[in-house]
Amino acid sequence: MDIEAALSDYIRSQVLKRPKYELGTDDPLISSGLIDSFHLVDLALFIEETFGVRIDDTELNAETFDTLSELTKLVRQRGG
């Protein structure tokens, strides 16, 4: 499955609990609070389990990634 689609699915269904939410690839995720700090940890676990890509605790912030496209790029760069 396409990385971006899988991440988008996960965020909409598991974090926002709104599968039909229109999540744009450049919508801010962390700086907008769409993903709060608890769910950020869940997201990192999902990425590790699904793509085998590790995102360190210290990277769970808007500087590392803040949008779906930035997150997809990060996962791809690390071999996901």
Binding site: K17, D27, S31, S32, G33
Partner: peptide, 22 residues
């Protein structure tokens, strides 16, 4: 709608200790 919603979410995060769930 979307940009207004994101603006609201962002302002709350920047000015309080919490994020809005919906």
């Amino acid at each position: 709608y979307k940009s207004l919603e994101l603006e609201l979410r962002k302002r709350v995060v920047q000015q309080s200790e919490v994020a809005l769930s919906d």
